[in-house]
Computed example of a mutant assay.
Amino acid sequence: MKRTDLSTWACPIARSLNRVGEWWSILILRDAMSGLTRFDEFEVSLGIAPNMLTRRLSDLVGAGLLERVQYSSKPPRHEYMLTELGWSFRPILLAFVEWGSEQLSPEGRAIQLIDQASGRPARIGLVDLETGQLITRESHSIVPGPAADQQIRQRFAGRQSAPAGNE
């Protein structure tokens, strides 16, 4: 089955999913941010079939999230290194950590973010970088932006304000 190309949609969620909206891709990015770089490391960590891993790595390289770097010429071997675009996905992964830990892990946190200076566990949330204010459903709304197309404007038409997170 051929995937729908969402790269030209005006919606930023659709465009993001077009780049990383497949669970193997997100798990590969997670492992890359943990320091894995080689095909066999990803294969062992994920228990993924080699042909699927090859496709996902190729997709992530094509999307500009990973860079394929040769580290051996005989035989030819490559590492997969995060690009700046790849590293910029880290806040999304941290949001997954928080949401999964809070909502889907009754046994407690399996992994956590630690403040390196104090050793204190950090809580992950969204704040307005301009004001430092915590972003909540009550305090912030999603509305069409300056680059919204007709479809996005219609989605929000007739609403006073859209609850945050409900685009």
Rank of each mutant, 00 (worst) to 15 (best):
R3M: 10
R3L: 12
D5N: 15
L6W: 11
S7E: 10
A10N: 12
C11H: 10
P12L: 01
L17W: 07
R19H: 11
R19W: 04
V20W: 06
V20F: 11
V20H: 06
G21A: 09
G21Y: 05
W24R: 14
S25Q: 13
I26M: 14
I28G: 07
D31M: 13
A32V: 11
S34I: 05
G35M: 01
G35F: 00
L36W: 01
T37V: 03
T37A: 07
E41I: 03
V44Y: 05
V44M: 04
I48Y: 02
I48R: 13
N51Q: 08
L53T: 08
R55G: 02
R55V: 05
S58T: 06
S58F: 00
L60V: 10
V61K: 09
A63V: 05
G64M: 06
G64Y: 05
Q70C: 04
Q70E: 10
P75Y: 02
Y80A: 01
Y80W: 01
M81Y: 01
M81C: 05
M81T: 04
M81Q: 12
T83G: 03
G86Y: 06
F89H: 13
L93F: 04
L94C: 06
A95S: 14
A95K: 11
F96S: 13
W99E: 09
W99H: 10
S105Y: 02
P106H: 01
P106K: 00
E107Y: 12
E107L: 12
G108W: 00
R109S: 03
A110V: 13
A110G: 11
I114N: 08
D115K: 03
D115Q: 05
Q116T: 15
S118Y: 00
S118H: 01
S118T: 14
G119H: 02
R120P: 01
P121G: 02
I124Q: 00
G125R: 15
G125W: 10
D128I: 07
T131M: 05
T131D: 08
G132P: 08
G132S: 07
Q133Y: 02
I135N: 07
I135S: 07
T136S: 13
R137Q: 15
E138P: 08
E138Q: 13
H140W: 12
V143R: 13
P146W: 00
A148C: 11
D149H: 09
Q151L: 15
Q151D: 14
R155I: 07
F156T: 08
G158W: 00
G158K: 00
Q160G: 09
S161Q: 10
A164H: 10
A164I: 11
N166R: 12
E167Y: 15
E167C: 15
